[in-house]
Design a protein around this nucleic acid. Structure first.
Length: 588
RNA sequence: GCGCCCGUGGCUCAGCUGGAUAGAGCGCUGCCCUCCGGAGGCAGAGGUCAGAGGUUCGAAUCCUCUCGGGCGCGCCA
C-alpha cells in the first residue's frame, strides 16, 4: 500500500515536471501512516518539501498534485490538510485485503526479499571460554540472535558466528586453575592463586581430568611452587599467576598441558553451546582465534600493515600507527617479548571476515568495548578495506532487579548469576523478550519478579495470552457445535465495521513495515513494542467496553468474518513472537 | 582531562529518515464484578520532552554550549 501510494505520487510529480508546473527535484517521496484517523490512513509531506525549490506555497503545490493524481481503486479519498499534508483514505476493499493476504502467506507474512540474498555476518556473544555465560552475556546473545533473525527475515543471507578466544592468557589461567584443582583431588595440598578461576565448574573439569587420567599428571606442590614470586597481598597476583602458568607448562610439557587446556576449553565450549541452544540460539560457525595464528593469518595481517608502512618499532615492540586513521593513539601489535597482542589477532580476524566476501559484517559488543571500535576501523582503513562494511553494535549493560533490589554480581568470586540460572528462574521466553525490550543503547533494568509474573504487567504473558485466547476460541467452536468457513469469512469481511475490528486490521497491516524497520535499524525492540500493541488491540476487541463482542455468534457470515480476522491476528502474533525467539503457546 | 552512550509525567520506557493537539505500561483514582479463560476491559488525573542558544515553514528529534548519570581510556583479553 505504502509503495503503491509512493508510485502514484512519483508518477504525478514527473507528469507535473514535464509540464513545467514543478521544477526538477529529487526530494524523496515519504509516505507515513497517520497517527490520527481524521487524517486518513497515510500522509505525504512532499508539498512542504517542494515549497522551497518551487518557490510556491505548500498548499498550492498540494492542490496541484492532488489535481493531477490518477485515481486508484485502493484510494477512496484524498485530502489536503494542515500546512500542506496530502492525506490518503484507503478504500474498504484495499483495507480488508490484508486479512486474506496474511492467511495466504502464513508464517511467511512479514518476511521479504529486501536483502536480496546479500551475505551478512553477525558475530555476537564471543565470550571468553573460561566459564559459563552470565546474565551480562545474555543480552548480547538475545540481541545479536534477534538482529540476525530479523536480517534473515528481510532476505539477507545471514551467517551467525561466535569468535572463540582460545589463544589468550585467560585460557592459560583457566588450564592452570584446573590443573591445581586436579592436584587437590590427587591429594596435594596447594595454595590456590588469588587470580585463578574460583568457580565450581573448575572443580568439575578437574574431576573429569582426574577420572580420565587418575594420577598421571600429578606433581608435588613443593616442586611446583618452589621460588615462585609471592601472590597477593604480599606480592603481585599477576606476576604470581604468570609464573605459575610457566611452571605448569614446563613441568607438564607440551602434551600434558595441551591435554588439560583442550579438555577445559571443550568442556566450557560444550556448556556454552548447550546453554545458547536452549536459549534458541544456534550458530553457523564457531571461529577459533588459535586457527588464525595456525593458518598464518595473523602474520599475514602484520605483514600487510608493515609493508604498507603503517608500523614502526619502539622499545622492542611493533606498533601500528593507528592515530593516522582516527584512533587517539598508536597501538602495539607485537610485544617486546615477541608475542602478538589480542589486537593483532583481531585485525587478522576482521581481515578474514571481509576476505570471506560478506557484504556487511556486524559485531555485537558490550558497550564497555566502545573504545575499541576506532582502532579496528583504523586497521581496516590502513589495510585498504572499507570500514563502512563493518557495523559495531554496542549493547549497554543489563542490571538485574529482584524484589526492587539490584542483584549484585562479582565474576571473580564465582557468585555471578549465570544465564542458565536466569533461564531456569524466569524461563527462556521471558528472558529473550526482556533482553530485547529496550533499544540496545539504553541501559536495561531487568526485573526478575516482573518477568516471572503471570499478569498483564508482564508483556510476555500479555502477548502470549492474546495468542492463547484466540486459540481457545477455536477450541470452543467445536464444543458449541459451530463451524468455521474461512473462505466465507473472507467474503464477508465488509461486515467488520466495529472500531476495534478496523484497528486490528490496521495494526496487523503494519507488521511488515515494523519488521523491515527493525531489521534495517538493528532494533528488535520495535517488534517487541509492536506485539504489545497488537495484543492490546486484541484484548480490547475481545472485551469491548465491558460488552464483549462475541466471536462465536450464530450468524454464519459474521462469525466466519470475525474468526477470519482473529486467525490473521493469531498468525501475526505467532510470527512476531517467533522472530523474537519466544514461543506462541496455544494454551497457557 | 579526553572519548562514547543516556537524560521524555511518581517509576520503567516508545516516539519511524524533523512534521499536524508528545504516546504506552506500571503505580494512583473511579468503574465493568466473570459472559468465547477477569492471566481481561473502560474512564480519569498526571509532562517547562535536563537547561540555554541556534538552524527550519515546522525541533523531543539536527547543530553548539552547560548541567546530571553510565561506561571506556594497558606491550589485558
Amino acid at each position: 500500500m505504502k509503495s503503491h501510494l509512493q508510485q502514484l505520487i512519483q508518477q504525478t510529480l514527473s507528469t507535473l515536471q514535464e509540464q513545467g508546473e514543478l521544477p526538477d527535484c529529487d526530494a524523496p517521496v515519504q509516505i507515513e501512516r497517520t497517527r490520527d484517523k481524521s487524517h486518513g490512513d497515510f500522509a505525504c509531506n512532499i508539498a512542504m518539501l517542494l515549497a522551497k525549490p518551487a518557490r510556491r506555497k505548500p498548499r498550492e503545490i498540494a492542490e496541484l498534485i492532488v489535481g493531477a493524481l490518477p485515481s486508484s481503486p485502493q484510494v477512496s479519498k484524498v485530502d489536503i490538510a494542515g500546512p500542506g499534508f496530502i492525506n490518503f483514505f484507503v478504500s474498504e476493499s484495499a483495507f480488508h485485503a490484508v486479512v486474506p493476504d496474511i492467511l495466504n502467506q502464513g508464517d511467511q507474512y512479514g518476511r521479504s526479499h529486501l536483502g536480496e540474498g546479500k551475505r551478512v555476518q553477525v558475530e555476537f556473544v564471543s565470550a571468553n571460554p573460561t566459564g559459563p555465560l552470565h546474565v551480562g552475556h545474555g543480552r548480547g546473545a538475545a540481541y545479536g540472535a534477534t538482529v540476525a533473525d530479523l536480517l534473515a527475515a528481510v532476505g539477507f543471507d545471514v551467517h551467525r558466528e561466535y569468535y572463540v578466544n582460545d589463544a589468550g592468557r585467560q585460557m592459560d589461567i583457566l588450564a592452570t586453575s584446573v590443573w591445581l584443582r586436579y592436584l587437590d583431588l590427587c591429594g596435594e595440598e596447594i595454595d590456590f592463586p588469588s587470580n585463578g578461576y574460583q568457580g565450581d565448574y573448575v572443580w568439575d573439569i578437574a574431576a573429569m581430568v582426574h577420572r580420565e587420567n587418575t594420577e598421571a599428571m600429578q606433581q608435588a606442590w613443593a616442586e611446583i611452587s618452589r621460588d615462585l614470586p609471592a601472590d597477593a597481598p604480599q606480592g603481585d597476583k599477576e606476576t604470581h599467576i604468570d609464573a605459575l602458568i610457566a611452571r605448569a607448562k614446563h613441568l607438564l610439557r607440551d602434551d600434558q598441558y595441551r591435554l588439560i587446556f583442550d579438555l577445559s576449553l571443550n568442556y566450557i565450549l560444550d556448556d556454552i553451546r548447550d546453554d545458547l541452544a536452549q536459549f534458541g540460539i544456534v550458530y553457523e560457525e564457531w571461529f577459533s582465534e588459535r586457527s588464525l595464528a595456525d593458518s598464518g593469518a595473523v602474520t599475514r595481517a602484520l605483514e600487510r600493515l608493515q609493508t604498507s608502512g603503517h608500523c614502526y618499532e619502539k622499545s622492542g615492540a611493533i606498533w601500528f600507527r593507528s592515530s593516522d586513521f582516527g584512533d587517539e593513539k598508536d597501538r602495539v601489535l607485537v610485544r617486546d617479548n615477541g608475542q602478538t597482542t589480542y589486537f593483532a589477532s583481531d585485525i587478522a580476524y576482521h581481515m578474514d571476515k571481509l576476505e570471506r566476501g560478506f557484504e556487511r559484517v556486524i559485531d555485537v559488543w558490550g558497550a564497555d568495548h566502545h573504545g575499541y571500535v576506532p582502532r579496528v576501523k583504523a586497521a581496516l582503513l590502513a589495510l585498504g578495506d572499507e570500514p563502512a562494511r563493518l557495523d559495531v553494535l554496542l549493547v549497554q549493560f543489563a542490571v538485574l532487579y529482584r524484589g526492587g533490589e539490584k542483584v549484585q554480581m562479582s565474576t571473580r568470586s564465582g557468585e555471578f548469576v549465570t544465564l542458565r540460572q536466569l533461564r531456569k528462574e524466569v524461563g527462556a521466553d521471558a528472558a529473550r523478550f526482556f533482553y530485547v525490550m529496550r533499544k540496545c543503547e539504553q541501559h536495561l533494568d531487568f526485573d526478575i519478579d516482573l518477568a516471572k509474573s503471570q499478569s498483564s504487567e508482564n508483556p510476555v504473558y500479555y502477548i502470549q495470552y492474546a495468542h492463547a485466547r484466540i486459540c481457545n476460541v477455536f477450541r470452543k467452536l467445536d464444543e458449541r457445535g459451530l463451524n468455521f468457513d474461512q473462505a466465507d469469512g473472507i467474503e464477508n469481511l465488509q461486515l467488520l465495521s466495529e472500531a476495534h475490528e478496523q484497528a486490528l486490521m490496521n495494526t496487523v497491516a503494519r507488521y511488515p513495515e515494523v519488521v523491515e524497520a527493525a531489521a534495517l535499524k538493528h532494533d528488535p525492540h520495535q517488534v517487541a513494542h509492536y506485539l504489545r500493541e497488537l495484543a492490546t488491540d486484541l484484548h480490547a476487541y475481545y472485551d469491548t467496553d465491558n460488552k464483549r463482542i462475541t466471536l462465536l455468534v450464530d450468524n454464519d457470515a459474521l462469525r466466519n468474518a470475525r474468526l477470519t480476522l482473529v486467525s490473521a491476528v493469531r498468525q501475526v502474533l505467532a510470527n512476531g513472537l517467533n522472530l523474537l525467539g519466544v514461543s506462541a503457546p496455544a494454551q497457557m
